[in-house]
């Protein structure tokens, strides 16, 4: 690459990056602004000083508990989906259980629009008394993320050489031991990556939570929308709550750059 090309490439790269990062920057700085700064005209492009008052309010009013709710709901449903999904994926990957039909049915479950899933689930939950309970939302998240886990783990398990497992079988392992002593260690990275993505999906989810929670298990995404008002929005709270919800995701993603593409492309691209 010549010097000139390289220069223009950097110009383009920086311009693009500014466009994609500025809104995030804006979200973050608003959360650190004082109310006066937020509602100043013309807007201030950077905060005069870092001000944590907006966060303090969230904790003082108890709104921050919604982040805890998100953590519980996303965490538990991820663990459940990983356990069930990985075992199912193993069966499909190794034994072609159910053939193409089962695999296709499972992935098609991922493609149904959430509104069409949540509506009947809501009707059922009303009957069962599961609306606004941890169990209700966790079950739904687990089921909704299962196809993803199965699909991804199927790919990672298929990458494990079959001979490794056969060798373990001959050496004296039962199938359970093979899964525990060979497949899991071989898929460690894939398991972690899939778990993190599953967690992020559940963590970021909005529509299910909006429908199925009221006051007890409100997640942070629903809480953000509570700050939208008819005439005026509670900007400080919107941004602070959004940052609380977004920061963990950024940190998680930073740790898994390597698996990102495979994770978001449903395994279509093996990084």
């Amino acid at each position: 690459m010549s010097k000139g090309t390289l220069f223009w490439r950097y110009v383009a790269a920086i311009a693009i990056t500014v466009f994609f990062l500025f809104p995030i920057y804006w979200l973050f700085i608003i959360s650190f602004k004082t109310p006066d700064e937020i509602f100043s005209f013309p807007p201030k492009w950077y905060p005069g000083q870092i001000h944590f008052g907006n966060y303090a309010v969230l904790f003082k009013d108890g709104d921050a508990v919604t982040v805890w709710n998100s953590l519980v709901v996303a965490g538990v449903s991820t663990v459940l989906a990983m356990i069930l999904g990985t075992l199912c994926a193993y069966s499909i990957a190794r034994f072609r259980t159910g053939g193409e039909n089962l695999a296709n049915w499972i992935i098609s479950q991922r493609m149904v629009p959430p509104i069409a899933i949540v509506f009947p689930v809501f009707l059922m939950y009303v009957k069962l008394g599961l609306v606004d309970t941890y169990i209700g939302i966790i079950l739904l998240y687990t089921a909704f993320n299962l196809p993803y886990v199965i699909w991804m783990m199927r790919g990672y398990i298929q990458d494990v050489p079959k001979a490794l497992e056969e060798s373990a079988l001959v050496d004296g392992c039962t199938r359970w031991q093979v899964i525990w002593k060979v497949v899991f260690p071989m898929c460690r990275a894939g398991l972690l990556a899939t778990a993190i993505f599953t967690f992020i999906f559940a963590w970021n989810e909005f529509l299910f939570a909006l429908v199925l929670t009221r006051t007890e298990v409100t997640t942070y995404t629903v809480q953000v929308t509570h700050y939208f008002g008819g005439q005026s929005n509670f900007w400080a709270k919107i941004s602070a709550m959004s940052v609380l919800g977004t920061l963990p995701v950024f940190i998680a993603v930073a740790f898994m750059q390597k698996y990102l593409v495979r994770g978001i492309s449903l395994g279509a691209v093996k990084g």
Partner: peptide, 29 residues
């Protein structure tokens, strides 16, 4: 590349909220 990924992993509802801040007629950039 690592930085450009960030919008995609933000919760869509947060992305919407962010853009409603961005688009505000008076205080938005």
């Amino acid at each position: 590349v690592a930085l450009l990924v960030l919008p995609t992993v933000v919760s869509p509802i947060v992305a919407g909220a962010t853009w409603s801040l961005m688009f505000d007629n008076r205080y938005g950039p």
